[in-house]
Write a protein that binds this DNA or RNA. Structure first.
Lengths: 294, 294
DNA sequence: ATATACTGTTCTCAATATGGTGACAGTTTG
DNA sequence: CAAACTGTCACCATATTGAGAACAGTATAT
């Protein structure tokens, strides 16, 4: 028995004062109203209203119950509205996790624009490359680079593709042996990124073991070392491209086979995504479509 | 969809943190819980909790909804308890309507005893012989004398049977013509009771037209006039019996056919009767069983 | 007075919704 | 690497449901 509907009908009945009118107003049959009210009375174990053929009269019990029923329905409406607000309102917090390097480069300008367009959305951005559990940490969105499929608990929207480039400063290259094949790297000072899955193997062609005197968890830090001519780095293109374009660093082994990764926007829910989040993801997609060749 | 049950299950789920445990505790299947929560989420248009295989995590929405849901359930409990209290509690008011004459004679002692036994029941007794609508006036109980069937809106418990007696004082009878047949009454001073259905026809045998110089809406007032030897009265036996026994008045036409009426306890509801009322009706039944021959 | 219209209730029956079973995909644990 | 567990999904017999008509009763209209 759907007690809630029964209560709603009871309140309506108390207002309209007629089973028939309630039936008309709700597009149902009299019999249904009668049954439903009867069921509610059964459930409560008390009569809510006296039916005399022409007049309905609330019982003592009915009067008290009516009052409480109205409050209950109000509370329910409240709860529904609360959800709806949180869902459809663009206001609200958005807790986002993103890779450090990406955050410092592209995302900083991207989200600056986004915040300008959506002043009511509050951003809470955690930059970091440690693998965190988005759900456990309560993140609404995570930006992840991946070459493989994504954890099945998440939906992943592909945003852009990127690759890595082996970078060095012109000065470094001039002072050291030429690099023509991936294997040549083993005799150079190759910086290692702390969180890199393969540790000290760069995924060029079949993988090249490298070694070097710098290990750091920031590709930007690494870039500065590269620019100073200290060594080579295996750097995402969104970090190094500008410096390559400006000539500060140069790419080596450009023709070698390197993994192409996809940047995903990850969000945990399947059915219902808050509009603020939808808006954010759309923005990400559009931004990368405009600014990058996917 | 039974939203209420869904809400209950959601609250349980939030507490236990596992679909399976909820299923066990409610003696249902996991699938049912899953479905029901899913339905609630559909209805709300938002996801209430993130399911990762090992941990359930409330959504922002879920947290807010949980809080509200708990309040709603409390309110519902409140409402139910309110009804239950009013229903099962012996405390409370009892608004009773009864015929004036009966009230002054038997009921006064009866209810004195009843109140003594049930100090927590508050009585609100309206004595009067006008026909009142019990429901409209908000009476819990009405005592009615009737020879015919009762209004179908009410349940009527028969309490006792009674009849009427033609009474006169010995002095009156000594001074006037003898009364041997009903027709003889037409030559006597016969008092008329104001609310009597047949007005000035006494329902003896086939009915006897009478006339007299007193019309009053109280059989007790009438009794006093009779005792003084002013005339004859058609009096309920519960009013006149004692005086007949004591010899103050005597009955005439004792053998004539007079209507036997039944005193009913009338109460409006069919399904649910508050226990205080049940108790009162039981008391009435018992009292009349002991003190009168039905 | 009598007829009519309208009240709420009850009955039956078809249609819908429901909840349990078992399989499933995916994880964590031993 | 197997086993035990998570929540979800599809299937299907079952139960509940709600509409419609018949009903009993009462007030209004004629």
């Amino acid at each position: 028995m759907d007690k809630l509907r029964a209560i709603k009908l009871f309140v309506k009945l108390a207002n309209l004062g007629s089973f028939t009118k309630v039936a008309e107003q709700t597009n149902t049959s009299k019999s249904m109203i009668s049954k439903e009210i009867g069921r509610l009375e059964d459930d409560l174990g008390a009569r809510l209203l006296h039916r005399s053929t022409r007049n309905l009269q609330l019982t003592h019990v009915g009067e008290g119950y009516l009052q409480r029923a109205i409050e209950i329905l109000e509370k329910l409406d409240d709860a529904d509205n609360f959800v709806s607000d949180l869902q459809h309102n663009v206001r609200g917090k958005l807790k986002i996790n993103a890779p450090m390097a990406l955050g410092i480069t592209d995302l900083s300008v991207l989200f600056a624009d986004f915040m300008h367009e959506n002043p009511d959305i509050e951003l809470d951005i955690h930059l970091g490359d440690e693998s965190v559990d988005l759900v456990e940490q309560g993140f609404d969105l995570g930006l992840r680079a991946s070459s493989r499929a994504i954890d099945s608990n998440y939906v992943g929207k592909p945003l852009t593709r990127f690759t890595y480039k082996v970078c060095a400063s012109p000065e470094y290259l001039a002072k050291h042996k030429a690099i023509n094949l991936p294997q040549d790297l083993s005799e150079h000072n190759c910086f290692v990124y702390s969180y890199f899955q393969g540790k000290d193997v760069w995924p060029i062609e079949d993988g090249v073991a490298v070694k070097g005197n710098l290990k750091v968890n920031s590709t930007l830090f690494m870039m500065d070392a590269i620019k100073k001519g200290l060594g080579l780095g295996f750097i995402p293109d969104f970090v190094c491209q500008k410096m390559i374009d400006s000539g500060e660093v140069v790419e080596v082994l450009a023709e070698a086979n390197k993994p192409r990764l996809t940047l995903y926007a990850l969000y945990p829910a399947r059915h219902f995504v808050p509009t603020k989040l939808v808006k954010c993801i759309r923005y990400l997609e559009d931004w990368f479509k405009e600014n990058k060749s996917l």
